[in-house]
Write a protein that binds this DNA or RNA. Structure first.
Length: 291
DNA sequence: AAAGTGCGCAACCGCTACAAC
DNA sequence: CGTTGTAGCGGTTGCGCACTT
């Protein structure tokens, strides 16, 4: 009945892996694969390790497609939006980030990103960021995937909250503010590098998941019902796994509201829309959202 | 220079769902 | 059909390094 025991924990080596063990495991797996049984693998490979430990070492560190190094701003947005939607389902979140493991994402969230978005010390869920809850459509208060609350990524230290003076742009995203809209939430964020809030042609980007396609997205201040500002989409494209894929060009915007009518993006994770803000209202918008 | 502290990350622990017997 | 093993997942721990005092 049943199967042979996994391994004798008292007899197998534990703790950090040596380079020799890494090489042995990697060579074996590249030659033979897992054989569908991790428990039996260490014996076959000549390793004095628990199969569970071998599996973890391979999945989290030795796999050739693992991406090491820091997370990008785009990955931050994906993690945050999926965390808000799914909670701590790290494997699902990691599956949206090629080369990242659930362990990586989990560690990154717990040590860095949670603090970055200001959830540290709270319950660790997006719903705790309720100080900024807004209901932008009193006639349709709880459905249609409309705005229920928003959360702003803290600005980079180089950018003053009160003085929108120009800092030196250093990459493509330097003139872009990003807004991220998940299934239930709206996240107003900001690319941290050298945003120029005084530039008339300032460009903002809004990322909208498929569940919101067809719904009305209003940009309003948390302190006032609705701002009299001009928000018009300048271009639309679909995205998948946080990466822009193709142009759509079918979003429309009238006054301070924008309606997403595109259905072409339903095969993708969502759509990405660039918005042009009238410069005279930039301060209002930025102040309204706590910039 | 040494001790203390905090942080990041790799690894382990424990639980659950599913499969094998 | 009940029991046991395995795979996979999320939570937690602990080591090592960097920074501070």
């Amino acid at each position: 009945m049943g199967r042979a025991p996994c391994c004798d924990k008292a007899k197998v080596k534990r703790g950090p892996w040596s380079p020799e063990e890494d090489a042995t495991l990697k060579t074996y797996l590249q030659k033979h694969g897992t054989g569908g049984n991790w428990i039996a693998l260490p014996l076959k490979a000549g390793l004095n390790r628990c199969g569970k430990s071998c599996r973890l070492r391979w999945l989290n560190y030795l796999r050739p497609d693992i991406k090491h190094g820091g997370f990008t701003e785009e990955e931050d947005y994906v993690i945050y939006s999926l965390f808000c939607t799914l909670g701590s389902r790290w494997s699902v979140i990691a599956s949206h980030l090629p080369g990242r493991t659930d362990n990586d994402v989990k560690n990154y969230w717990n040590t860095k990103l949670k603090k970055k978005v200001g959830l540290a010390g709270k319950a660790g869920t997006c719903s705790t960021a309720t100080s900024n809850i807004i209901n932008h459509d009193p006639q349709h208060p709880s459905n249609l995937g409309l705005v229920q609350y928003h959360y702003q990524f803290p600005p980079a230290p180089s950018i003053s909250n009160t003085n929108h003076e120009k800092s030196s742009p250093n990459n493509h995203s330097s003139d872009t503010n990003s807004c991220l809209v998940s299934d239930h939430d709206v996240v107003y964020g900001q690319q941290p590098h050298g945003s120029d809030f005084n530039t008339k042609a300032n460009t903002n980007t809004i990322i909208i998941n498929n569940n919101n396609i067809g719904n009305k997205i209003s940009l309003i201040s948390p302190h006032q019902e609705q701002q009299d500002m001009v928000v018009n989409p300048t271009s639309c494209s679909s995205y998948t796994r946080g990466l822009e894929k193709s142009n759509l060009g079918s979003c429309s915007g009238i006054g301070s509201t924008t309606t997403i009518t595109s259905t072409a993006a339903v095969q993708e994770d969502g759509i990405l829309m660039e918005l042009g803000f009238e410069s005279s209202n930039i301060d209002l918008l930025l102040n309204g959202f706590g910039f």
